[in-house]
Computed example of a mutant assay.
Amino acid sequence: MEDEVDRLVAAWRRERPDLDVEPLEVLSRVSRLARHLDRARRLAFSEHNLEPWEFDVLTSLRRAGAPYQLSPGQLLTQTLVTSGTMTNRIDRLAKKDLVERLPDPSDRRGVLVRLTPEGRDRADQALAGLLAQERAILAELSRGQRGELAALLRRLTAPFDNIPG
Score class of each variant (00 low, 15 high):
residue 94 A to I: 01
residue 66 A to L: 04
residue 164 P to R: 03
residue 54 E to A: 11
residue 150 A to T: 13
residue 86 M to W: 04
residue 30 V to I: 15
residue 2 E to T: 14
residue 39 R to K: 07
residue 119 G to R: 03
residue 116 T to S: 08
residue 112 L to R: 09
residue 19 L to N: 02
residue 82 T to V: 09
residue 86 M to N: 02
residue 146 R to Y: 09
residue 15 E to Q: 13
residue 62 R to W: 13
residue 1 M to D: 08
residue 29 R to C: 06
residue 32 R to W: 11
residue 32 R to I: 14
residue 45 F to L: 08
residue 148 E to K: 00
residue 123 A to W: 07
residue 24 L to R: 04
residue 126 A to F: 05
residue 101 R to E: 15
residue 91 D to L: 09
residue 10 A to T: 06
residue 154 R to S: 15
residue 80 L to Y: 08
residue 37 L to F: 09
residue 131 L to H: 02
residue 140 E to D: 12
residue 71 S to D: 08
residue 69 Q to F: 08
residue 55 F to E: 04
residue 110 G to Q: 06
residue 131 L to F: 03
residue 96 K to M: 07
residue 18 D to E: 15
residue 153 L to T: 12
residue 29 R to S: 08
residue 55 F to M: 07
residue 76 L to Y: 01
residue 160 F to T: 08
residue 130 L to T: 01
residue 103 P to N: 04
residue 106 S to N: 11
residue 9 V to G: 02
residue 13 R to Q: 15
residue 157 T to Y: 08
residue 27 L to A: 12
residue 141 L to T: 03
residue 59 T to C: 07
residue 24 L to C: 05
residue 161 D to Y: 12
residue 136 A to V: 02
residue 52 P to A: 05
residue 141 L to Y: 14
residue 140 E to R: 13
residue 68 Y to L: 07
residue 152 L to Y: 10
residue 94 A to N: 00
residue 29 R to L: 09
residue 116 T to F: 00
residue 95 K to I: 03
residue 24 L to V: 13
residue 150 A to N: 10
residue 7 R to N: 12
residue 144 G to N: 14
residue 12 W to S: 07
residue 83 S to V: 02
residue 26 V to A: 13
residue 127 L to D: 05
residue 26 V to S: 11
residue 42 R to T: 07
residue 90 I to L: 11
residue 36 H to A: 10
residue 142 S to C: 06
residue 136 A to K: 10
residue 8 L to E: 01
residue 67 P to D: 14
residue 31 S to E: 11
residue 140 E to T: 10
residue 140 E to G: 10
residue 75 L to Q: 09
residue 99 V to G: 02
residue 44 A to F: 04
residue 61 L to G: 03
residue 152 L to V: 08
residue 114 R to H: 01
residue 20 D to E: 13
residue 17 P to A: 00
residue 73 G to Y: 05
residue 142 S to Q: 06
residue 89 R to Y: 11
residue 160 F to I: 08
residue 159 P to A: 12
residue 26 V to K: 10
residue 158 A to Q: 15
residue 40 A to F: 02
residue 12 W to G: 05
residue 55 F to S: 01
residue 7 R to M: 13
residue 146 R to S: 06
residue 45 F to P: 01
residue 101 R to W: 07
residue 19 L to H: 10
residue 104 D to C: 00
residue 95 K to S: 14
residue 3 D to F: 09
residue 164 P to D: 14
residue 161 D to Q: 12
residue 68 Y to I: 01
residue 130 L to S: 01
residue 109 R to H: 14
residue 45 F to R: 02
residue 145 Q to P: 00
residue 119 G to Q: 01
residue 51 E to P: 02
residue 160 F to S: 12
residue 42 R to E: 15
residue 109 R to L: 14
residue 27 L to Y: 15
residue 98 L to Q: 03
residue 56 D to I: 05
residue 69 Q to V: 04
residue 42 R to I: 06
residue 91 D to R: 12
residue 119 G to A: 03
residue 72 P to R: 10
residue 159 P to S: 12
residue 153 L to P: 00
residue 157 T to C: 07
residue 15 E to P: 01
residue 16 R to W: 13
residue 21 V to T: 15
residue 153 L to Q: 09
residue 90 I to G: 01
residue 136 A to E: 13
residue 22 E to N: 04
